[in-house]
Design a protein around this nucleic acid. Structure first.
Length: 421
RNA sequence: GUGGGUGUAGCUCAAUGGUUAGAGUGUCGGGUUGUGGCCCCGAAGGUUGAGGGUUCGAGUCCCUUCACUCACCCCA
């Protein structure tokens, strides 16, 4: 019979990898809570309408990447392609804005997009998501970005760079689109097919194109940040001052464009050179209209998402310090000893010691090999002779030295010995 | 969605169209009574991704399909 395999683009995360996931999540919890953020848990399934309204009808995500289906009641549901929309929904549904002027929220979880799988791109992938709602001040932007960079530093990620940009606001962006559209129209012939199409739909996207002709056409193009209104300019300037004050290195990338419609003003991305085409490790920005667009009060917000698979693939390999190996392996010989090993092993676990033993009556040699393979610090040798003489041998697996331990009160002796380090 | 590359043991890879598809590594066992790592010996482990075709004969050639992978696209 043929075995059933996982759905394309969906991955198992096995022991050996999960340690890194836990490390990343634990670090995130610690850092974010130091900044006053609280964890929120939200469903993976939402009404389709939520994403259409927040992400934008004409974005690629909504147009061709969502897992949308009708449930048995005939309602259109969608596996979330990102988390911000759900957090906003929960924020409004539970009127969090009414109970506190500032909401600092983070969440972990899987997201779903039906794209062709590739390095660093899966159909189910995980994000760490942070949202800060309430204040619209530029210093908040700097603080959130600072927290992101601190988190990345704490998980020992290196070789990344931070880029920021401003997308302006609903008042000033349209006028720039017009300016850019007119500029690019003059160069239409040098643009690739895709970009010629983009002229009509979203000329800002041409900035993202990697085709040489388009790069050249765009190299002298006007920049959005030169056309944004005074208020947006001031906001962007304060944001940069904030980052400088917090000694956070960044570069302004006037060509950075983001794929979700709800962003306004500050946007940012953390990228790497070692991930191939999927170079964004984290990204986010300010969304001052989103809450209102979803039917809520006028509450500005800012947030970011970290791609966990991408982040983990960039982490240094050597992380032995986070995998736990046994403190003690109990090797037993004979029925009586085996029974005692069984009791002792579980009592030690009860006391917080990672103990292992073997129940299948294997040769001492096999048990020693297993102890070695598991990386146990000590092996306790418990056989018929030891039972008779009321003492067992405790072997240090690193040096190979052995010392006797009295059978009576052995539990306490072992605990004090093993917990000493 | 479009294009390229790759599918052989758990993993990394061999095998001119020609016997019974091999090696390393890993797993399990053994190398005189009850001691790990190094070394030696042995065993288990495969529908050669799947399905069709060409051929006296296919892991090898052809077609289809699936998966993986890289790039486009998009984004975390």
């Amino acid at each position: 019979m043929e075995i059933i395999k996982a759905v394309r683009g969906f991955k198992d995360i096995l022991p050996g990898e999960t340690e890194r996931w836990q490390f990343v999540e634990d670090t995130a919890r610690k850092v974010f809570s130091d900044f006053g953020f609280k964890e929120i848990k939200i469903p993976v399934l939402e009404k389709t309408e939520l994403f259409r309204r927040s992400i934008g009808e004409t974005t690629d995500i909504v147009e061709k990447e969502m897992y949308t289906f009708e449930d048995r009641g005939g309602e259109s549901l969608t596996l979330r392609p990102e988390a911000t929309a759900s957090v906003m929904r929960a924020y409004l549904e539970h009127s969090l804005h009414a109970s506190d002027a500032v909401s600092k929220l983070f969440t972990f979880g899987p997201m779903f997009r039906r794209e062709r799988p590739q390095k660093g791109r899966y159909r189910q992938f995980h994000q760490i998501n942070v949202e800060l709602l309430g204040p619209g001040d530029a210093l908040v932007d700097a603080e959130v970005i600072y927290m992101l960079m601190l988190f990345l530093e704490r998980v020992r990620l290196t070789g990344v760079s931070l880029e920021i940009n401003s997308l302006g606001c609903p008042e000033c962006r349209p006028s720039f689109r017009k300016v850019l559209g007119e500029y690019l129209a003059k160069k239409e012939k040098t643009l690739c097919e895709d970009c010629q199409r983009r002229l009509g739909t979203n000329p800002l996207r041409v900035f993202d194109c990697k085709v040489e002709g388009c790069k050249a056409a765009v190299s002298a193009a006007p920049f959005l940040i030169d056309y944004i209104c005074e208020r947006c300019k001031e906001h962007f300037r304060e944001d940069q001052e904030g980052l400088k004050a917090l000694k956070t290195a960044f570069a302004v990338n006037p060509r950075m464009v983001r794929g979700l419609d709800y962003y306004t003003k500050t946007t940012f991305e953390v990228t790497t050179k070692s991930l191939g085409a999927q170079n964004a490790v984290a990204g986010g920005g300010r969304y001052d209209r989103l809450v209102k667009d979803l039917g809520g009060p006028e509450v500005p917000g800012i947030g970011f998402a970290v791609g966990v698979e991408r982040l983990i693939s960039l982490l240094p390999e050597l992380m032995e310090d986070i995998v736990r190996s046994p403190d003690l392996y109990i090797a037993s010989l004979g029925q009586e000893a085996r029974k005692l090993a069984f009791i002792l092993c579980n009592r030690l676990r009860h006391l917080g010691i990672l103990a292992e033993t073997d129940y299948s009556n294997r040769s001492l040699k096999s048990q020693m090999k297993r102890s070695d393979k598991l990386g146990a610090r000590y092996t306790l040798l418990l056989g018929e002779n030891e039972l008779k003489e009321r003492k067992a041998f405790l072997r240090n697996m690193k040096g190979g030295s052995q010392e006797p331990v009295g059978l009576d009160d052995m539990e306490n002796q072992l605990v004090s010995l093993l917990k000493a380090r």
